[in-house]
Design a binder for these strands. Structure first.
Lengths: 160, 160
DNA sequence: CTCAAATATTTCAAGCTTGAAGCAAATGGC
DNA sequence: GCCATTTGCTTCAAGCTTGAAATATTTGAG
């Protein structure tokens, strides 16, 4: 299983490309499936769910920039989504004493409650969708994704 | 490395969720990086690159629906992108003898040439970005992503 | 043959996303 | 303290994306 016929530089490159295409396709498939279920069962949108999910794990709130970095999404984007959540009474902006540029975003009680309803389903869906993977698969993939993430971070510093 | 403290149903679920979040984040990071380089070096857009990439591997052309299934993207979306590529003389639509509903999309010579220029860079970028993974990592991840894909296909048939 | 169902695509509105430009506030070198 | 730089956010145009509805064509059951 860990034996490979050739490990020349060219074949490694090809394998890397192959991995990337597979990673992308898998990721999109799962995302589509989650989006579909979220729409069908809760008439809700994935980006909104993602933002609320980030907020729900930070009882003290998050700055706009923190959200956008966590979700790997541009800043201008978050503004719009938080605006809408705020209009709907699900989130609110709180002033930060020391810094008048930034604000903390927090879920309202209504937001917490709504997220809780969706969140339980979401966990069950993921469990269902990834059900084919056992503990060994999970551990192996997580470890390798972590390694990949390290590479990406190192990349940031000097890459083109 | 393949030993896990607990494999109760709950901890498996949590690991699956953890894996999904990591998968998504990694995928977005790589995609962002590729998008950034494509824009900087070629003033080009990722969706257009993806469509041309699919077309370049099918000298006989692809139907709209085939492209959208390959890229995991909605059909209405492909229409717009192919429209633009066609306007710019990079792709063209060819009638199919037996079926007047569908058309084949093909790259023009100009499209082939343009894609070839971008494609070489793209391969080098992926090699650079995933450079931290050796043959063992690659094999391990590809095998597990394949297993996951099988699960997803099985899912399609009966899932909610 | 006939017509309902399936297939292939386009159209469209609503919403998401990016990247660049702009503004306000905070920071740090001097 | 001053002001150039950095940081945090918003605004905006262009483009992407989805999902649903509309259109056209083909297929298949009877």
């Amino acid at each position: 299983m860990t034996v490979h016929p050739q490990t020349t530089r060219e074949s490694l490159s090809k394998e890397r490309l192959r991995l990337w295409l597979k990673l992308l396709k898998t990721s999109r498939s799962i995302e589509d499936e989650v989006r579909r279920r979220l729409r069908r069962h809760h008439d809700w949108t994935l980006p909104r769910f993602d933002v609320m999910s980030a907020l729900s794990r930070a009882p003290d709130g998050l700055k706009m920039g923190e959200i956008s970095r966590m979700l790997k999404v541009s800043g201008g984007n978050i503004t719009g989504i938080v605006d809408k959540l705020t209009e709907e009474g699900l989130a609110l902006r709180v002033a930060i004493p020391g810094d008048r540029r930034a604000q903390l975003v927090r879920l309202t009680d209504k937001g917490q409650e709504m997220f809780a309803r969706h969140s339980a389903d979401h966990e069950a869906w993921i469990d269902d969708i990834l059900g084919g993977l056992d503990a060994d698969d999970l551990g192996g993939m997580i470890a390798r994704l972590d390694r990949l993430t390290e590479t990406l971070l190192a990349e940031d510093k000097d890459a083109d």
